[in-house]
Amino acid sequence: MVRVDGTGNGTGLIRVRDLDKKYRRGSEEIHVLQGLNLDVERGEFVAFMGPSGSGKTTLLNLLGGLDLPTSGSITVAGDEITHMSAAKLTAWRARHVGFIFQMYNLIPVLTAFGNVELPLLLTRLSKGERRRHVEATLGVVGLLDRMDHYPRQLSGGQEQRVAIARAIVADATFLLADEPTGDLDRKSADEIMELLGRLVHEHGKTILMVTHDPRAAERAGVVLHLDKGVLVEGSVSAGVGA
């Protein structure tokens, strides 16, 4: 069960305590996140909503070990990541986190297969094992027949499915999705949300997603609102974050 009041018993997958993040822009100090607490169990699908500049992406970056907090702690599957060295954090990220971006961020000179294979290049898997993993994963996202296509030969929805395949191919502990439907038409957006839902319900994945789209948020089991750096539980309503 997701909690934002800091009363979780600490047995969950993700445990965030008193998280603060401040930026300095010139002489101005911006307090993006203020004393944030969060507990997420395995297999949960959490959506973060909130106005632009509310700190959603910053929170995602901190949870993914891409950025460091000003204070507070983040513990994932027993690993306290806020005090890890950059090198350890990189290795941890490779093992535990799958990222899905709004703009897909595929490598244009690699085929769908090559893009999905990228995280596996960092493992000890043989070439044959990598191939089997990639084909199985592309099968999950329904793009096995497009594995030799380059990103420019795919539609936006297909590109995002390749990006999702890349995020799950190494069996990440949890997925972080930053506006995964933000650049897609409605039909493609629905397909992507359907796919993310399946990953949670059929494959037991844990997903934390930032979105402005209430329809996308509806697919998540829990919707949390971020406003002025503070996290509150809430329900989906039209217009939130729009």
């Binding site: 993914g64 891409l66 950059a86 090198a87 990189t90 290795a91 990220r93 490779a94 093992r95 990222f99 971006f101 961020n105 490598i107 990228l118 995280p119 960092l122 890349r166």
Partner: peptide
């Protein structure tokens, strides 16, 4: 630039 950022995101180390 963006591609290097993505590579780092998926776990490519600085020496990589």
């Amino acid at each position: 630039t963006a591609e290097f950022a993505v590579l780092k995101t998926v776990g490519f180390s600085n020496p990589d």
